[in-house]
Design a binder for these strands. Structure first.
Lengths: 342, 342
DNA sequence: ACCTTGAATTAGAGCGCTCCAATGGTCTAT
DNA sequence: ATAGACCATTGGAGCGCTCTAATTCAAGGT
């Protein structure tokens, strides 16, 4: 920078002004500086600028799992909104592991990001509270509401209820839930499953199996389920990936879907739309969640304190080809016989 | 940091030594410093450290498209290798657009990353050459070999040949290639398709349709193909996503796969393994490519100059359920009649 | 001629850390 | 004792930028 200043015969400060295209600079000097910069191949050092400015214009995004397309969509939304507000986005991978997530967050903090979006993070409330005091922080798709923290999410409980309602309306009663294990949203969706079952008058048939959130997590659960004598007629999986894994295994075992078993996923990732899967699922407004996350961060940055901000978006059932009436009981033409919702 | 030093009754320099856990520090002082740091909630400022050290210990990873699971796997490999070598990984999204990629690279450069891995980047050789002089840079899955630049990739041409050989061996002759458009690997795979066709003695049937690399890109091409009178009996798609899109559309049009049309993808992403897709495809060693990318960067960092490093990995055909003999011509039991390879 | 105003420019003090060279100790060998 | 070696510790310059306050200069007002 000093070199540029010298070559353009101005002060270092003026170079700085030009580089930040301040309106206070005369056209003549501006051109001189820009030319000198070009000739010298000068490129401003963001590290130094960040230090001097005490600002990084950067937000950190912690993604629970790169391989899950759900997160890709959310991140797209985050990036779009962030870039519209002149913020850089730093992405780190949590690898579905609380310990590694904590590590990533520590990195963000040391890097002095101005805010963090934790997408699907699986952290305890105590950790979150501690982090929140250091830097604005929004939990995205984080399941339960965390005390004192801003959150953006889908109404997971309602989403799960939608899934169960749909299955019950088709005439299913023996509906198993493959649950999300340690995933952040697992508890809410499980609760929704349970309340949905009870609302449908089949609360005594509640049956939750611990699975996970990846394709592979489904395999053992399906195997176990098929080995039992009272095989369920419907499965509500924690997410699309898990449902896809279930589909894999069911097909491998010669079970027809939805002929023998109906299957519902969650997230409405592009996977579920592949016609050969054609997975009935519950949509989350992924892009909107991403944008809203940045919006929330911005608001918190501007405001400072104030009540926790909570955005709870509406899930939507997307009926595709993996759900149908159970084989043993033909569909009720006039709709379900029992009560459908609370 | 000054506060910590004061509280621990040592100099700022000593705090620095402790924070970098230098062995030169007595246990007594070390403990004192650590305690003071804890009590004050001190967290080293990486921005300042990076500036002072003139090093960032960071490599930039430019990903062409977050939604394509292929890249997720490569990034996993990069992260694994990088963290083993104490490097931080910064990820930016190219959004399948050369202009945005250039922008991301500029950001990396200003952030003073120590190296860059461009995964699937669609940049011209001139751009690459210019960037390469600024910072070590490796092209991953970048298709053709770029002069003077380190590259890690799969032998795309051979991969495409494998696909064509497989189809030809099944008895197909009317094999269409849905090409990758502006994607970096498109040209090589197209070339492999063409040489494969010629080697199979059906060079005159070469038929390339411009498509792209995303699911949606397949739709129009399939529609056009189905509208023609001489519908192909086999399609070799640029990648799995495209193949999945094609599968969607074919099924929608009532075409059986592989009954009416055989379909081959590329990349062997997890999508292709979903049993309901069960896509025949060409595997790229994605994780290995990621690790090798970092290895290459490290080597370049250590060495400085020297010949361009090129890693060309072997593709592998993965036969699944979307390929079979053409309906019009039963399979040749003894294998293909014509020549199969050069 | 003098003061005011305002715009364009600059000097220089940081930002929070690292690292070199220098300091003061202690320990060993003579 | 004394020099030398060796260790833990420290002062302070410097990393490349920003930003405040100060300075310069020209134009306009009285």
């Amino acid at each position: 920078m000093a070199d540029v200043a010298e070559r353009a015969k101005v002060s270092r400060a003026l170079v700085s002004l030009v580089m930040n295209n301040s309106p206070q600079v005369s056209d003549e000097k501006r051109r001189a500086v820009l030319r000198a910069a070009r000739e010298l191949g000068y490129r401003p050092n963001l590290v130094a600028r960040n230090l001097a400015q005490q600002r990084t214009h950067t937000i950190g995004v912690l993604v629970d799992d790169f391989r899950n397309p759900f997160f890709g969509d959310v991140v797209d939304g985050i990036e779009a909104e962030a870039s519209e507000h002149g913020l850089r986005v730093l992405i780190l991978n949590g690898h579905r592991d609380a310990w590694r997530e904590l590590d990533a967050i520590e990195t963000f903090l040391q890097l002095r990001v101005e805010g963090m979006a934790l997408v699907g993070a699986r952290l305890g409330d105590d950790d979150l509270a501690r982090i929140g005091t250091a830097t604005p922080c929004v939990i995205v798709a984080g399941g339960t509401v965390h005390p004192g923290t801003d959150t953006v999410g889908t109404d997971d409980r309602r989403g799960a209820e939608l899934a169960v309602e749909h299955l019950a309306a088709l005439g299913h009663t023996r509906i198993v839930h493959m649950d999300g294990g340690s995933n952040a949203s697992a508890a809410e969706r499980r609760a929704g499953y349970e309340s949905g079952m009870r609302a449908a008058g089949i609360g005594e048939l509640i049956d939750v199996r611990t699975a996970g959130d990846d394709e592979a997590d489904a395999l053992a659960v399906i195997d176990a389920l098929l080995a039992e004598e009272d095989t369920p007629t419907a499965i509500f999986a924690f997410n699309d990936l898990l449902a896809a894994g279930a589909l894999n295994r069911l097909a491998g075992a010669g079970m027809a879907v939805p002929g023998d078993v109906s299957l519902v996923g969650f997230d409405d990732t592009f996977i579920s739309a592949l016609r050969h899967l054609s997975l009935t699922t519950v949509n989350q407004p992924k892009l909107a969640m991403g944008r809203l996350a940045v919006g929330t961060l911005l608001q918190r940055l501007a405001d400072g304190s104030g009540e926790p901000i909570r955005h709870m978006l509406k899930p939507e059932l997307v009926v595709r080809g993996t759900t149908g009436p159970p084989s043993s009981a033909p569909p009720h033409p006039g709709g379900p016989s029992g009560p459908q919702r609370t």
